[in-house]
Design a protein around this nucleic acid. Structure first.
Lengths: 123, 123
DNA sequence: CAGCATCCTGTTAGATACTG
DNA sequence: CAGTATCTAACAGGATGCTG
């Protein structure tokens, strides 16, 4: 696979650069680290949530941004959308196995941030 | 410490929400997951780099964004700036211990993205 | 070489209103 | 309840030129 990141970790010295602009990793990194991406992914990490629950969990997110973030992740195969055709409608969102893998890598980061954020901002 | 993330992982049920809007974690998360934040942090993970080296490592970053990203991380205490008052000037950037901790949590994520990005984008 | 100043653009995101 | 539609605003980000 020709993803430069994995290759370049070894610092071959000949490879032009470590983080080329036109690399699929950039796209995925952008999705996941989008303003609400991390928060949505981690909210679903403990189990599926309904639309409204998600909105309340990720405080401050607008309906538009929640919809767009979820659709992006659905297209990426990170999130499942399960819509019940009932009235009133009920839609549950959950992580796919792939999404769970991503969330798993996000958890240590968020835990660390939670532990150090105050000190950093106060500085 | 009143960082809601760490607390809420247990799903107390009484806590209003998991990711409140006015939380220092939001600020730090924004800095680190900014468009170039992850790439800069990881570029420095293997050792200090000069300004120009960083520009080349993180392909596509503009001078303005590199400067602003570095200044933010410097203020957060994640990056050290070491300026030699020589002519021509030489400035080296390196991670602080705090920055190294952050980068360490970013590595698994980037490795995972590198392994899965193509499949996700191709989808 | 390592920036900063200035100006400018466009995506990203917020507000509001409406619907099946 | 779970969205869509539309309109607008803000700020991240880019281009260019200049300097110690």
């Amino acid at each position: 696979m020709d993803v430069s990141f994995a290759v370049s970790r070894t610092r071959p010295g000949i490879t032009a650069e470590k983080y080329p602009a036109d690399c699929p990793t950039r796209t995925v990194l952008t999705h996941i680290t989008s303003k609400w991406g991390v928060l949505v992914l981690l909210s679903l990490e403990q189990g599926s949530l309904r639309w409204g629950e998600l909105r309340r969990e990720v405080e401050g997110i607008s309906e538009k941004m929640l919809a767009s973030t979820l659709r992006t992740f659905e297209a990426d195969g990170l999130v499942n959308r399960d819509a019940q055709p009932s009235i009133p409608p009920r839609v549950d969102y959950s992580l796919t196995p792939l999404g769970r893998e991503a969330a798993l890598r996000l958890l240590p980061l968020m835990d660390w941030i939670a532990d150090n954020a105050e000190a950093m901002v106060a500085r």
